[in-house]
Design a protein around this nucleic acid. Structure first.
Lengths: 216, 216
DNA sequence: TAGATAATTCTTGTATACAAAAGACTACAA
DNA sequence: TTGTAGTCTTTTGTATACAAGAATTATCTA
């Protein structure tokens, strides 16, 4: 994550975000300003501002004079998220196919190998990071900065649920799909790349849904 | 716009947002907390929070200890915006084609007639509202609430530039395109609806770009 | 006069104090 | 016992006071 630790607000926001993503603070938990302020040894002011920021990032729901609650994410939210990711990344892939340099495609290949290794070594913390790096290469190559930043914020928002996927075999499937995506990029086949990337996102959705059913 | 005037923060945010959208506050203008606070007869606290909110909505850029500046939107931003709108609304249309009721399509037809009337009467303030209502019908019918809210926030963010389009003849073209979109929805032709909606968005982009060139 | 550096001012970041609203609790009556 | 009214507590919303960083100006030196 980006760490602009210049102000207390950002420190508090980053710390809370991390705790929510890691699951240390459970959905439904009510966060109170004084409580958080005391635990960070600050006043309520930076905490309030951090709350607002986390609200817009989708981690907290704030009701006027009622306080902040860590958002519960429903199966519907996840379906909607992957639907958007599928559409946006698919489009990004279509545009990227024209722009990607050979070096960038090589880099994707390298990352995909690393992803496979991480799976074999059960190194799940690296896995998410590498997975994201892989996707970011073609998303950034699409030449639409706002689109890239939008996708980044969506992915970040659902990170806490995607962590669950690191365990599953869906990773292996994903690695195989990535190989086909790389081949499509090498062939500069924009339509093929777009539809494969969309498919990859749908796999994520399916895997996460199955995982939730088991957990529930 | 939604008006939750419960807190001062929201009142200030809404008022500033409106002023920026209407062009009363020009891009590049630096907003200072005390100044705004005095003009609204409040303290800095609600103003600060309103600034943060407007930052996430894309109207202000805040630099640490440097203050808030009304965002300048570049030609690139506009291109990127319409590209995203095209993709997202196109997808929404594809999904909506399966869900739209006859009554909803009738409503779209009605709105499109009103849009034509407003153009004839040069009633430009209603024009934008009606145009948005038309689009919101199929966007909401796509069955993806997050997508709908994302599109809404994007459109809202670029509202201030789209105002310029109300004058132009591109409205007439848009009305004609809307008719074809309605026909596609009536025929439940999802692919046709999707591609027509994408096209409609691209028209908006082109019209706005031309308009900016003239203005510059 | 030009440049650098120190002092000052201006503005935001943070802390604390006060106001008001929502929720909890108590007491009383039916 | 239960429902309701009214008070009390808790927590957020707002105002103000204080701290610190950035920008600007003034001063000094080469």
């Amino acid at each position: 994550m980006t760490s602009n630790n210049n102000t207390l607000r950002e420190k508090v926001a980053e710390s809370l975000r991390e705790a929510i993503v890691k699951g240390e603070i459970k959905p439904g938990t009510r966060l109170q300003e004084v409580e958080i302020a005391e635990s960070y040894k600050t006043s309520r002011t930076p905490v309030r501002e951090a709350f607002r920021q986390l609200e817009t990032e989708g981690f907290l729901a704030i009701k006027p004079r009622r306080g902040a609650i860590v958002t519960e994410i429903t199966a519907r939210d996840i379906r909607e998220f992957y639907e958007m990711k599928s559409v946006l990344e698919g489009f990004a892939a279509r545009k990227a196919a024209e722009n990607l340099t050979d070096a960038q495609i090589d880099r994707m290949e390298q990352l995909n190998l690393q992803l496979r290794e991480c799976y074999d070594n059960s190194n799940l913390s690296s896995m998410i990071s590498i997975h994201n790096q892989f996707h970011e290469i073609f998303v950034n190559a699409a030449g639409n900065e706002q689109l890239a930043s939008l996708i980044r914020s969506l992915v970040n928002r659902f990170q806490r649920y995607r962590i669950a996927l690191s365990h599953t075999d869906s990773i292996l499937e994903s690695v195989a799909q990535h190989e086909r995506i790389i081949a499509a990029f090498r062939a500069r086949d924009a339509e093929q790349a777009a539809s494969l990337v969309s498919l990859n996102s749908q796999l994520g959705s399916k895997a996460l849904m199955d995982n939730l059913k088991i957990a529930a």
